[in-house]
Amino acid sequence: MLRFDPFHDIDTVARQLLGETVGSTRAPRFMPMDLFKAGDHYVLNADLPGVDPGSIDVNVDNGTLTLQARRSLPSDEHVQWVASERFAGSYMRQLSLSDGIDTDNISATYNDGVLSVTLPIAEKAQPRRISITGAGDSAKTIEAGKS
């Protein structure tokens, strides 16, 4: 399915005027990702095929998780492009994190073109037991249910 982008032609002309003519003039538009909860943590998987692992940057600042990466094309010296359909350039994705994420223990791996970021749930955000006492009653314990 093709998406209508009224600014695509203007963007292409601007890139050509600025001298960006190596390989594809198309730039990455987004970084596809999946996010799921598995036990006491969340897992974010982002597709970054062909990205140099050294160009990947994952950081957290003030409750915002930022993922950045770059895919480069071979230099155009002695290269005659026949087809150039793969995106090249910088990718970036930002997500707001809740206070329930333990930002000090976030970890990431890159394998087979997929960046996996593990976001542990903070201990304060995990279900816990709460004791309830009433006048003249013995203590009762209610376990927090899972939604």
Score class of each variant (00 low, 15 high):
F7P: 00
I10S: 08
I10E: 13
V13W: 01
L18R: 10
E20A: 12
E20P: 00
T21E: 14
G23W: 10
G23F: 01
S24N: 15
A27H: 06
M33W: 05
D34G: 07
L35E: 01
Y42M: 12
A46Y: 02
A46S: 11
P49I: 08
G50S: 04
G50Q: 01
V51P: 00
S55D: 09
D57A: 11
V60E: 11
V60F: 07
G63L: 08
G63D: 15
G63T: 03
L65F: 02
T66A: 12
T66K: 14
R70A: 07
L73K: 00
H78V: 09
Q80K: 08
W81I: 11
V82D: 15
S84D: 15
S84G: 10
R86L: 13
S90T: 06
S90F: 01
Y91L: 09
M92C: 05
R93G: 04
L97P: 03
I101K: 07
S107I: 10
T109H: 06
Y110G: 08
G113K: 06
V114C: 06
V117S: 05
T118P: 02
T118Q: 12
P120V: 05
I121V: 15
I121Y: 12
P127K: 15
R129W: 07
G136V: 01
S138F: 04
A139C: 07
A139Y: 06
I142P: 01
A144S: 15
A144G: 09
